[in-house]
Simulated assay, not measured.
Amino acid sequence: MKFVLSKTNRYWWPVTVRLPDPDQPGKMLEQTLKILFEPKDQDDALAEQTRIAAIKDPRAQVLAEREALADVCKGWDDIVDDDKTAIPFTPENLMAALQKAWFRAAVYRAYGESLSGEEARLGN
């Protein structure tokens, strides 16, 4: 198969969120979803990292990091609310989800894995 050099690459990637089990103290639950990633080119990513690193206010820096992660997320699937109703992907819903430490860590981890050039591991 020939390599296709696309101007923009978008791809779905599995995300496994590990969070505390509310019914079993000390145990973790794993929940899965998919995120549609559109990574930045290396120069753009480096410029973003430099800009974020230059921010002196820790709160503003955390917000900029979260916005940078949100910027590469273009869609999601398999996310529901407590009533099992699908939650649509919107910038507002994504930013609300990224407020959750477990969700944010899982998305960062999945994004990094997707850029490493290796296929997703079973169970992420």
Rank of each mutant, 00 (worst) to 15 (best):
N124M: 15
A64D: 04
Q24M: 12
A105V: 13
E113R: 10
K27F: 11
A68N: 04
Q42K: 09
F89V: 01
T90W: 02
E119N: 13
R59W: 04
N9Y: 12
E118K: 10
D21Y: 10
A68R: 06
L122G: 07
L29P: 01
A101W: 07
L63T: 10
D82A: 15
Q99R: 09
P22S: 05
A110G: 05
A110Y: 05
N93I: 00
P20N: 10
A86S: 05
R59I: 08
V72Q: 01
W13L: 01
K56N: 15
D44K: 14
I52R: 08
A86H: 00
I52D: 04
V80T: 13
Q42E: 10
T32E: 15
R66W: 04
C73M: 03
W102K: 10
R66K: 12
E30R: 15
P14E: 02
L122Q: 13
V15R: 00
N9G: 11
K7D: 14
W12G: 02
S116A: 11
A45F: 09
I52G: 06
E92L: 03
G112H: 05
A68E: 04
Q49C: 13
Y11L: 09
L33C: 00
D83H: 15
K7Y: 06
Q24V: 14
E113I: 05
I55P: 03
R109Q: 15
W76I: 01
I79L: 08
I79S: 01
